Simulated assay, not measured.
Amino acid sequence: MTLLRIDASIQGPRSASSALADLVVAEFSAARPEETVVARHLGQKPLPSEAWALAIAGSFTPEDERTPEQREALELATTLAAELRDADAAVLALPLYNFGVSQHVKVWVDLVLAGAGPGARLLEGTPVVLLTTRGGAYGPGTPREGWDHSTAYLQRILADVWGADLTVIEREFTLVGVNPALDEFTALADQMKQAAEDAATQAGKTLGAR
């Protein structure tokens, strides 16, 4: 069994989303120490932003007429799609940035789509845990309600386009303790953190028991 882990945080060791992914993977590996974990960190090693356009252009170019750059981009796109297709389970730590997915995640999604081909259900029935974090609060009644343009998009791609058996774990107010303007929400933020950690731990146990 192969577990694919994708991270996209730019926060390094301070990453809230990666911390949740660590919990999932730790529980999975404790239950299945012999299994392989394939990791790709889009934030630490970003994919080249120009690769998507090159892959698309290359796909419409006869093979013997493709440029070296188009060949390289298509090979990368195929590799990324294969990582998802070959995974028996996946853990995706993809935080909200500037009200949407980061450029790193968007390039990854676009390249996977280019490498998979039209209509490919790369994750059909595959258990996938999506861990998404937000610095503020975006729920009903908050000033930022409706400003999260990341979570619904990721659900569409992962579940509706790629067919994943999706579990979504969300944590808000990760900037409490960092931004003094949010200090009044400390107790609520602590509750949200604990709830997300409990959910991540359970998700890891569930993956390990499959």
Rank of each mutant, 00 (worst) to 15 (best):
G163S: 08
T61V: 09
A51M: 09
Q44T: 12
W147R: 10
Y97P: 01
A137R: 12
A26G: 10
G125V: 11
V24F: 06
T201Y: 08
R40E: 12
D64Y: 04
Y138E: 08
W52D: 08
L3K: 11
L80K: 06
I10M: 11
V129C: 09
E69M: 08
T206C: 07
L158D: 02
A30R: 15
A77I: 08
A30Y: 09
A199S: 14
G119S: 13
G177C: 01
F28W: 14
F28V: 11
P62N: 05
Y153W: 15
W52C: 07
A199Y: 06
S49T: 13
D22E: 15
L80H: 06
A159V: 04
E145C: 06
R156Y: 13
L84V: 07
A152M: 11
E75I: 00
L166W: 11
W162C: 05
R171S: 07
H104I: 04
V178R: 11
L111I: 11
T151S: 14
P48Q: 12
H104L: 08
L3E: 12
R171D: 06
A31P: 07
L182K: 00
A77P: 02
L96F: 03
L4R: 13
D190C: 00
V112G: 06
T67N: 03
A16S: 08
Q191F: 03
G141L: 07
R71I: 12
A55G: 02
A196P: 05
D22Y: 02
G146R: 04
S17A: 15
R210C: 06
A200F: 07
D148V: 02
A137P: 00
P180I: 03
G141W: 06
I169M: 11
E145T: 11
P140V: 04
W108V: 08
L158P: 00
A31V: 08
V38K: 10
G125Q: 11
T2D: 14
A120V: 09
P95F: 08
R32S: 13
P180M: 02
T201P: 07
E63D: 14
G115F: 09
T133H: 00
L207N: 05
Y153I: 09
A26T: 14
P68L: 09
